[in-house]
Amino acid sequence: MKLKSLFLVALALTLTACGGVDPNSPQGQRQAIFKQMLKVSEDLGGMLRGRIAFKPQRFVSGAAELDQLVRTPWQHFPQVKEEGGESRAKDEVWQRQARFQQLARELEAGTAALVAATAVRPLEAADLVAPVQRVEDGCKACHEEFRAF
């Protein structure tokens, strides 16, 4: 009975170890950053679309946070695709690096423009729609070319 229990515990531990991405791997790090980016951008978009109350100071800090986050995931894409894990990145990320980097820089420019738009006073939600749309379009463009859905 003890042997059977020990075997079941070992089996359970083995199965749980196979199910995830190492959070310290490049893939795990970029996935965590992309999840943070999504949460922040959803909050910003939610404020402009009426799902969340528009709070100017919260919007300003969210835009600054997004601008910082958007500059970090690219360093976690190694020159050669890592083996293993369930990445949603298409092989084109590594085959078309110049285009991938171009879209990354365009997204960074979009978040920088959003931060600049938050410096205008008084801060009006209507004035932030176009800069947020530019950021969302940047995300969408990269996803369409380089993300497997």
Rank of each mutant, 00 (worst) to 15 (best):
S25Q: 09
G85P: 14
R96H: 07
A104K: 07
R96T: 05
S87A: 12
K2T: 15
I52V: 15
F77L: 13
L107F: 04
A112L: 04
Q102V: 02
G19D: 15
A98K: 06
K55E: 13
E108W: 02
K55F: 06
A109V: 00
R147G: 03
A125P: 02
S41H: 11
R51T: 15
E65S: 11
V60M: 14
G138Q: 01
N24L: 11
K4C: 12
G28S: 11
V40K: 07
M37E: 15
I52E: 14
L66D: 07
E106M: 02
D127Q: 13
L13K: 01
V132D: 12
K35Y: 13
K140S: 06
T14C: 11
R96A: 09
L128C: 11
G28L: 08
N24W: 08
E82Y: 09
W74D: 04
A12M: 12
H76T: 02
F149T: 05
A63S: 13
A12N: 07
K81E: 05
F34V: 11
A113F: 00
L66P: 07
C142G: 03
P78S: 10
V80M: 13
R99M: 01
I52F: 05
K35Q: 11
R121Q: 10
V115F: 10
L69E: 09
Q57R: 09
V21Q: 14
D67L: 07
G19A: 15
Q95L: 01
A125N: 01
S61M: 14
F100V: 02
R121I: 03
R49W: 13
A126K: 14
R121M: 08
L66C: 06
T16F: 13
G84S: 09
F34D: 09
